[in-house]
């Protein structure tokens, strides 16, 4: 199986504190992989490494066959254009309308003209189930679920190879959580995004079991389990067992 992201003995230390310890994982291309773990386990640090926002102290990180540590600042900025990211609270630009938020990457990085941008924004809006009446609303006028949809549409605008989700369902009500989960599955598995690799950082075990193809469990900077969802459910590792039992009951 081809890897989109390959971590080989990755270590990250901040002063005396080791956040990632000799971590190795191969994240498969075109699949939905969730990295689970307790708060402070190193999930966000690992995601920042994928994006090249932090560099490993030791080890090798290959993302789409590029060694992230060897990229210059300018190369890193270009490299990041292959990613889309849905932030925990969507991180929409609060001075821009829904339309302007979705169009932002298209204006910045493509040579599309105004009608082409309008068409692409309309397509993206319908793909994430956004109504036309929210087009000219500011983020402050949108509900939590709507903001997630706009954030996802913006992340998909440049047709990324890898889509990162940072705690996508944290703080949402059950109905909106289901909507976001369905959206992640639809986005990760539709025909036109067949090669899209989705990486989710989460501690929502129920959502993870529903939407993931592969699950990794991160504890104290180490991957203690990485397997397809069906096998992950049957794991006998005591920490994961406790995590599964506590959060599914």
């Amino acid at each position: 199986m081809e890897s989109a992201i390959s971590c080989q003995n990755l270590t990250k230390t901040f002063g005396d504190h080791t956040v990632l310890k000799n971590l190795s994982i191969e994240i498969p291309k075109g699949k939905i992989t969730t990295i689970l773990g307790y708060s402070g386990a190193g999930k966000s640090t690992l995601m920042k490494h994928f994006l090249g926002l932090q560099k490993p102290t030791k080890g090798k990180l290959l993302v789409l066959d590029k060694n992230v540590s060897e990229l210059s600042d300018d190369e890193l900025r270009n490299f990041r254009k292959q990613f889309g990211m849905l932030f925990q609270y969507a991180a929409l630009f609060d001075s821009l309308t829904t339309y302007e938020n979705i169009a932002f990457p298209l204006i910045e990085f493509t040579k599309m003209n105004k009608p082409q941008i309008e068409k692409r924004v309309n397509d993206l809006m319908s793909s994430v189930g956004l109504q036309e009446q929210s087009l000219h609303r500011l983020p402050s006028e949108l509900s939590g679920g709507m903001r997630k949809r706009v954030g996802l549409a913006r992340a998909l605008a440049l047709e990324p190879d890898i889509l990162l989700y940072d705690e996508p369902t944290t703080g949402l009500d059950p109905i909106t959580t289901k909507m976001v989960n369905d959206l992640i599955i639809t986005t990760g598995r539709t025909e036109n995004t067949k090669e899209l690799t989705s990486v989710i950082i989460s501690h929502d075990i129920q959502a993870t079991l529903k939407i993931s193809d592969y699950i990794a469990f991160l504890e104290k900077g180490e991957i203690i389990e990485f397997s397809p969802t069906k096998e992950f459910k049957k794991t006998t590792h005591p920490t994961i067992r406790m995590f599964l039992d506590l959060t599914t009951h």
Binding site: L51, L53, L76, R77, N78, F79, R80, K81, F83, M85, F87, Q88, Y89, A91, L92, F93, D94, F104, P105, E108, F109
Partner: peptide, 18 residues
């Protein structure tokens, strides 16, 4: 500062914008 605490600055950086 508000953009920083609401991750809007991270969103810019992730898009490859300084």
């Amino acid at each position: 500062g508000t953009m920083k605490v609401t991750e809007q600055i991270d969103a810019l950086e992730v898009m490859g914008i300084s």
